[in-house]
Design a protein around this nucleic acid. Structure first.
Lengths: 139, 139
DNA sequence: ATCTTCTCGTCTACGGCATCCATGCAGATG
DNA sequence: CATCTGCATGGATGCCGTAGACGAGAAGAT
């Protein structure tokens, strides 16, 4: 993580699909050097992933519904894998491993109850949640 | 925005750098068809952009101890008064009125367990909490 | 029914991009 | 001094993205 890596991240923050050669032109390095650096940051965990930003379900923009979801994972599910998955779901603002009867506490923002329903389904199907409990925010 | 577009977005939500041909393989369309659909969604504003997701962007990295406290208020306690009190306590990052068995969910950050103990005491004495349940964050 | 037109897909060709491998070059280490 | 390691470049190769030509199906007018 040096100044060049920061420059690369600056580019990727604005355009997550920027090609390695385009990044290279901006920071003054070859395509290969950029690819190697990005690979390294992906492996070391600095870069968690990439995601599309949508107008429809941005966390703040149209979050009509805010909620907290307690999640108990399936015993077979890997905790790290769940966290990695959760970070890539735009509706999930934050996911925290906590003590108590449940494993994770999720802070989420969705547009409506239909979106909440979809999120809960994918939590069980793709996230590996064995049991969930949802509490709506009433702010 | 039909079912195919949704499928494309599902892929891009998980991997914002997925190639058009890779998406095409998953949804059963040609590279060209995917590119055209993505272009259309970008132009129409459904897709705002693409961002890299960094590990360092978490809201964390501050206090030594982070926790979530479920609070059930004394029936005599006024909800608004509790909120007003909570806002003045620096350790309380956020207080949200929620549905469920408890009234409020507090997100707090303290230096150590001693500070947590002090906070819990004042919650009951000055905050008017009838019952609390604390879950430590394990990040 | 036929023709027009619009939409949305595939197929093909070509230029650009990513990847693999070889290489050069500094600085640290024996 | 020799060598190892990290990090860059440059070239070869194959995949990806783009653009244009073309076909299939739906809707509407004559």
């Amino acid at each position: 993580m040096d100044a060049v890596d920061e420059k690369i991240l600056d580019v990727l923050r604005v355009d997550g699909r920027a090609s390695f050669s385009a990044i290279g032109r901006q920071v003054g390095l070859s395509t290969n050097a950029i690819a190697a650096r990005v690979r390294r940051m992906e492996k070391s965990g600095v870069i968690v992933g990439y995601r599309v930003v949508l107008a429809a379900d941005g966390p703040e923009s149209t979050a009509g519904l805010e909620a907290f979801i307690d999640v108990r994972l399936d015993p077979a599910e890997d905790s790290e894998a769940f966290l990695a998955w959760a970070r890539l779901v735009p509706e999930i603002r934050d996911a925290v491993h906590v003590t108590g009867a449940y494993d994770y506490l999720l802070h989420i923002g969705v547009r409506d109850t239909a979106a909440l329903d979809r999120l809960l389904r994918s939590l069980k199907k793709q996230g590996g949640a064995a049991h969930t409990q949802t509490r709506l925010a009433l702010r």
